[in-house]
Amino acid sequence: MDLILDILSWFFILLGSAFVLIGAIGVLRLPEVFTRSHAAGMVDTFGTGLILLGLMFQAGGFNLIVVKLIMIGFFLFFTSPVACHALVRAAIVDGAKPMLKEGVVLEGEYKDTPKDEGDKPS
């Protein structure tokens, strides 16, 4: 039983560490703040989630330690999108222009000019 828990812990912690490293490399490698925030979001959700999950198997049964780990995971789960959105929104309001790929036509995109007064949904 201990062996199975150890193997599960190793698996989740190593996978989480790998995703944390990839996210950090992405923050270093990607070209500007909007694309970098995707990589940071990866660290926030998957890397931390997997490492916390791996730690839960080492707590020795369901006890207060597991509850606290779940609480840490919950806080990160709910605060990370808010911080990410606030950051990107602040960058946009400050006038940063995201680097976009030219000539992409997406199906089903909501078409409305932002200056339109009567913002009526179609």
């Binding site: 990839i22 070209p31 694309t35 990589a39 990866m42 995201p98």
Partner: peptide
């Protein structure tokens, strides 16, 4: 989604195609 983004980041050519769009 994480696996997709990780593939994009670790591939040497960095095949990103950032787009910005609106949806209802």
């Amino acid at each position: 989604a994480n696996i997709d983004v990780a593939k994009v980041i670790i591939s040497p050519k960095l095949p990103i195609s950032p787009v910005m769009f609106k949806t209802k």
